[in-house]
Amino acid sequence: MVPPVRPRKLAKVPFVELADGRLQGVVSSGSDIGRVYVSSIAAGTHAYNCSTNNNRPCGGLYGAPCKHLQALAAEAVLQYGLDRVARYLRVEVPEGADLIGCLDGSHEPAPAAMVFSRFLRHLAYLEVPDTTMPIPELHWFPAPGTVG
């Protein structure tokens, strides 16, 4: 029921989602391993934002999407496929064109804290211990086959 995602390298952009009317995610800083950027692009308006998880604006936003937003868009395309991302953002991407180049929004502040806390909740799954008690309910969820 949920289309499976494609495996991709997570080092640069560990978290991407299509949620709350935005393509949003978390981009690891290239220089400081303790710092992350929260980047988002709104569906429809394509308004974009990038800031640190403490809401400090990203220094790379000079009237155009910064490298974090570019990485976010590129990784989203790897994860979900171009069609799904373009459909969600409501943008026409001509064949061979770059998703980010087809967006015509401007910079508008957006809340970073909520995206960051969703990322932490996402990470928290890795800390849930495994169990060896049977879970018969998972028979309703066969593992997906290889995604093309």
Binding site: P4, Q79, L123, Y125, L126, V128, D130, I135, L138, A143
Partner: peptide
């Protein structure tokens, strides 16, 4: 008999990585 291990994960961990 059966025996099972269930792990918690996220959607980006899929395929052989699981």
């Amino acid at each position: 008999v059966r025996t099972a291990v269930t792990v918690a994960k996220v959607d980006t961990i899929t395929g052989p990585a699981t």
